[in-house]
């Protein structure tokens, strides 16, 4: 009987799963620079949020190169106050907080060549959990 009730609940509630929320992309991001918030363009390259300059030069852009390296090398992710932030710093980046069109903050990793990638997407590349 319990089995039947469970099956019934499972079947009836299946449509309640919501689709994942869409990401805010485009030029609607802002970053703090020079004492004020300025627009920061972000685009999608093969599912990764990066700055447009990086997407145009994917073979030389440090953000994408680091992502590719993280995919292959299974670098250990540490449990930290902010795991994606800590991983960004670990692979040679520094963190930039961006604000999207909905005013939510997003953590991006910036590399010395100025390229940007979403820190959580970088963190999750070929992820080996701690």
């Amino acid at each position: 009987m319990n089995l039947l009730i469970g099956l019934l609940i499972t079947t009836l509630s299946a449509p309640a799963f919501a689709a994942p929320p869409a990401s805010a992309l485009g030029t609607s991001f802002e970053r703090y620079a020079g004492g004020r918030f300025v627009p920061q363009a972000i685009t999608e390259h093969q599912g990764l949020r990066v700055n447009p300059e990086c997407a145009q030069t994917p073979t030389t852009c440090q953000a994408l190169k680091t992502h590719a390296r993280a995919l292959q090398s299974r670098i250990k992710r540490d449990i930290a106050a902010h795991p994606a932030d800590a991983f960004c710093v670990k692979v040679g980046g520094s963190v930039v907080l961006l604000r999207d069109a909905e005013k939510d903050q997003r953590n991006f990793c910036e590399f010395p060549d100025g390229s940007l990638i979403d820190s959580w997407q970088l963190h999750d590349a070929g992820k080996e959990a701690p």
Partner: peptide, 26 residues
């Protein structure tokens, strides 16, 4: 709920940015 009974789920707002929310079912 499922075949093994029911289980509670909580929604949290974390201070790890919006991408964390998105990749963790909001």
């Amino acid at each position: 709920c499922g075949l093994k009974g029911c289980r509670l789920s909580f929604k949290i707002q974390n201070s790890w940015g919006k991408t964390w929310q998105e990749k963790n079912e909001d």
